[in-house]
Simulated assay, not measured.
Amino acid sequence: MNPRFYQHFWDLVGGDVSSFVIKCLNTRVFPEKLNDTDVVLIPKKCVPETVADMRPIALSNVLYRIMAKMIANMMKSLMAKSVPHILSDLLVPEDVTRISRIPVSPDYEDSCYWFSDPKGIYTVKKAYRQVVGNIEYNPTNFGKWITLWKLKVPPKWKTFLWRAVCDILPTTTNLLMKRVEVDPVCPMCGLIHEDVMHTLISCDYSKIVWTISGLPVTNVITHSLPFWLTGILDMLTEEQCGLVVAVLYHVWAARNMAVWEGALPRPEQTWRRAATTYQAYCQVHHCSRQPVQQPTSLPGGLEARPRCFFNAGFNHQIGTATYGAVLVSHDGAFLAATNNHLATSHSPLMAEALACKEALSWIMARGVWQCCRSPTNLILAHSTNL
């Protein structure tokens, strides 16, 4: 029952409440769950979205609060008499005299005051700042925040880029630091540990996407994403910077697809999605821009020839590897396929290299002698133009 109930029906329940409280105080025993408190979150607005939109309120037992108030009022008179004796035991006489001269009025009720706030009001945010301290911005890490927030790209891309620069994306390295048990290997290449710089820039899959895009980002060599992005924003045009953000966002989306769906899209598809999405955003928002540069076509009409797609699988536990290859025509029609085991393969990288060798031997055995490899079709690209 809330306090208003007891106030309204005090003529009915007042005698029972007084008898119960006096009995508990005299016997120094009260029911076990009398002091239980329920914390209820009250929404501050109609549709709360975060914890900050909720106001915590503690609901305690009214009878317990009545007893606590009675004890506090009784101790006020006792403390006024016993404080001088306590001070004399702890402090020197000079300090006792000074403390005794401080005016204290027993008519005032005690109240809580939070010393970190000028008004004495406590909030969870201020307590958190008191514990962890204020976050100081280090200008040596990244000094292009204004330029970043002014980019003409979707807001969620800017938020993603902010999280990447601050290194708070859920990469395997960050998850392990948070004591989350995950496989530390990169889900895209499966070779080394995954951090933000590796996932977005230096991973073999990411390198292929950047090569296909034709953006001059390989000239910026660093092991820090903030420094890399600073060089990109200083060197490239506004349109190119928008494309860079689009590629970064869709590379991360491809990484998430590999984690949650177990399927990694082809690098060409990732670049095509990034370019198409950015182009559509610019058309809707009437951004002045040039058409997106598509990957250069192969010389001599090689794009009209058949294509071979291959891939390799590697089992870390037993150390065995397999490969598969599919031959399709220039318009995507199926021609032939093959698969088999790979011998003497000790790593995923070796498995990919052997798969490429076996695929080339297979297509040459079928009488396809002319082949071409563009710069975008590396060993890990899973495709070779013929």
Results as ranks from 00 to 15, higher is better:
365 A>R: 05
36 D>T: 13
182 V>S: 00
142 F>S: 07
5 F>N: 08
174 N>G: 12
153 V>F: 12
226 P>C: 14
327 L>Y: 05
223 H>Y: 12
139 P>N: 05
296 T>W: 01
335 L>A: 07
126 K>S: 15
142 F>E: 12
70 M>A: 08
210 W>A: 06
348 P>H: 01
192 I>M: 15
40 V>R: 04
336 A>Y: 04
187 P>I: 04
337 A>S: 00
293 Q>P: 09
113 Y>Q: 05
326 V>E: 06
353 A>Y: 01
286 H>L: 11
90 L>K: 13
104 V>P: 02
264 L>M: 10
56 P>H: 08
79 M>T: 05
33 K>V: 14
363 I>Q: 01
187 P>V: 02
99 I>T: 15
23 K>F: 15
308 C>N: 03
237 T>I: 04
155 P>A: 13
370 Q>F: 09
236 L>M: 07
246 A>V: 07
174 N>C: 05
74 M>G: 08
203 C>H: 09
150 K>N: 10
73 N>H: 13
348 P>E: 03
298 L>V: 00
347 S>N: 04
165 V>N: 04
97 T>E: 14
229 L>C: 12
202 S>W: 10
141 N>C: 04
178 K>H: 15
180 V>D: 06
173 T>R: 13
378 L>G: 02
263 A>V: 14
137 Y>T: 01
2 N>I: 03
156 K>Y: 11
298 L>C: 14
183 D>F: 12
98 R>D: 14
332 G>K: 05
13 V>Y: 11
142 F>K: 07
16 D>G: 09
192 I>G: 10
233 L>K: 10
85 H>Y: 12
241 C>H: 03
119 K>L: 15
268 E>S: 03
217 V>A: 03
334 F>W: 07
216 P>F: 11
113 Y>S: 05
196 V>W: 03
99 I>M: 15
205 Y>I: 07
326 V>C: 11
269 Q>V: 15
149 W>Q: 10
334 F>M: 03
94 E>G: 08
16 D>E: 15
228 W>D: 11
365 A>I: 00
385 N>Y: 04
283 Q>S: 02
32 E>F: 14
143 G>C: 02
1 M>D: 09
18 S>C: 12
332 G>T: 03
87 L>D: 01
330 H>Y: 11
123 T>N: 09
251 V>L: 13
199 T>G: 05
100 S>N: 15
272 R>S: 13
369 W>R: 03
111 S>H: 12
295 P>K: 03
291 P>N: 10
316 H>C: 12
40 V>C: 04
219 N>C: 06
226 P>G: 15
80 A>G: 02
243 L>E: 14
379 I>W: 03
296 T>M: 02
237 T>K: 08
316 H>D: 12
126 K>Q: 11
145 W>V: 01
53 D>T: 08
24 C>H: 06
205 Y>R: 03
196 V>P: 01
251 V>E: 10
16 D>I: 09
362 W>D: 06
314 F>H: 10
249 Y>D: 00
79 M>R: 13
48 P>W: 08
344 T>V: 11
201 I>V: 14
48 P>E: 01
65 R>D: 13
353 A>E: 00
357 K>Q: 04
236 L>S: 05
26 N>L: 10
111 S>W: 07
90 L>A: 10
257 M>W: 10
125 K>P: 01
31 P>W: 11
366 R>G: 02
163 R>E: 06
99 I>F: 15
13 V>P: 01
348 P>N: 00
85 H>R: 11
